[in-house]
Amino acid sequence: METFGIWLAALLTIGIISFLYKDNVLYKACESIFVGISAGYWFITYYWDNLYRKFYLGVTDMDNPHRFFLWIAFALGVMMLTRLIGKIGWLSRWPLAFIVGATAGLYMMTYFVSNAFVQVGATIKLPPDFGSVGSYISFGMIALGTFSGLVYFFFSKEHKGVFGGTAKLGIWFLMVTFGASFGYTVMSRMSLMLGRLDFLFGEWLGMIN
């Protein structure tokens, strides 16, 4: 079974890599297997984890203070299925409206605090090494970069004149950020491919130890 598993994994690996050359029969087969198997896997995970563990065990636990709420969630879930019944299909909008409202409400505060608020606060905090000339330059650059980046995102004024120049500076800072993320990621992506090659040539073909 173990040998069969390794062979299967190796063929699937080659099938996916072959996409780099062009779309082909092997890739299509791998893609279809991947879609079917993984969709089934996720459904089963949801089923046992959410419907059985979170809902069923939740409502049958008499000490659970949230039992009543779980039934509301269940009712909203059932409403989702009314989409399949033409005449009352509009009821499926209720759970959707609930989810959209809850996501908007929940993240409105979370993002406001953790992104907008905290980032402004962090920029005007005293850095630990404040005092040296280098630290002044770094501190000033962080403030300048953040400020000019915000100017770039400004919607109410056209990017012209001094304002446009500041926005341009903001774009440059953003480009450094993107470049830094890009450079930071390249190495780790290479190691992923090395991992797969190691599997093919080591575990499967036994050519490397």
Partner: peptide, 25 residues
């Protein structure tokens, strides 16, 4: 680069995202 210009760029993106999420919500 990671600690200074990258951080500045990240912060401006994050602040913008924070405000954008509030307005959209």
């Amino acid at each position: 680069v990671m600690n200074v210009p990258n951080l500045a760029g990240q912060r401006s993106i994050l602040i913008g995202v924070g405000l954008g999420v509030v307005a959209m919500s």
